[in-house]
Design a protein around this nucleic acid. Sequence first.
DNA 1: TTCACTGCAAATAGTTTGCACATAG
DNA 2: CTATGTGCAAACTATTTGCAGTGAA
Lengths: 145, 145
Amino acid sequence: MAAVPDRSHVEDMLTLLRSRGQRVTTARRAVLEALVRYRDEHLGTEELAVRIRRDQPEIHLSTVYRTLEYLEEQGLVHHVHLAHRAVSHHVARDHHQHAVCDHCGKAFDLDLSLFDELTRRLADEHGFTAELGHITIGGRCADCA
Amino acid sequence: MAAVPDRSHVEDMLTLLRSRGQRVTTARRAVLEALVRYRDEHLGTEELAVRIRRDQPEIHLSTVYRTLEYLEEQGLVHHVHLAHRAVSHHVARDHHQHAVCDHCGKAFDLDLSLFDELTRRLADEHGFTAELGHITIGGRCADCA
DNA sequence: TTCACTGCAAATAGTTTGCACATAG
DNA sequence: CTATGTGCAAACTATTTGCAGTGAA
C-alpha cells in the first residue's frame, strides 16, 4: 500500500516543514515518528505521549498537545474523534475513516472510497464540501450485533 | 413533517417511561421539553441547562447530565458530536441527518438515502451495523467554500 | 544572536460522583 | 412509606496557557 517506506515518510514531512521555513525540533520528529510507528493502535493523545516518553522522557505532555496542533495546522496530521472523550491523531497520508463499535469499542479503519458517493452527492445536491476527516461512525460490529 | 404536535410528543415519551415502570420527574420533563423546544439550535449540554434554568432555576447542571444519560439509556434521546468539545442531544424521533457549515453554521437537512450506499457497504464489507444518528457532517457550504 | 519552541506548573472546561435530602409512585 | 432522583460541592479528566529558560537556524 505505502509507496514509500515509513522512515523516509517522516523525513519527507520534516523536509517539507524545512522548505516552508519551519523549524524541525526533537519534539516534532518524535511525534511524527510515534504517529507512524503506532498508527495501528489509535492511541489517544495522552497514551501517545506515554509511548514517546519511553524513549524521550524529556518531552512533556503539553508539548505533545502543542506539537499535534502545530502539525495539524501544517496539514501533516489529522485528528479523529474515536470515542466520547478520546481524540486520536494520524499522519495525513494515512487518511482513513473509522467505525467504532459502541459495545466493545473496537475500531475499524475504513477505506475512503466508502464515502465517495456521499461526498459527491453532497457537492452536487447541496453545493456542500464535506470535511469527513474527523468523523467516526458508531454502531455495532459483527461480534456484538 | 411531524405527524404529532410537539407537546404531545413529550407526553408520549413520558407515558412510555411510566409504562416501563420508570419515574416521571420534573427534571425529566423539563429536559425533554427543552430538547423539543430548542431542537433547531443544536445546544451543547451546558447551554441546554442554561435554557432550562431560565424557567426552572432549581434544576442543576449535573442533573441535566444525569437526565440526558438516563434518557439515552431509555432510547428516547440521541447524542451528536458537533464540534471539538461540544456534545449535543436530540430526541430520538427527530432522527435527522445534517451537514453543518464550519464557517457560517448553516445547517442542511440531508436525505437519508445519501447514506444508503455507505450503510450497505459497511454491512457487506465489514459486518458493521452503522448507527448514523450521532453524526453531523462538517465542511463548507457553497457560500463559504 | 534571535526568536520560536519547550518544560513546568497552574488554570480552565467539560463531565462525573458521593452524600444527605426531597419526592414519585 | 421507601426506593429513586436531585441539589450541591468537590473530584476528575482532557486540554490550554503564562512564563522563563533552551535550542534551531
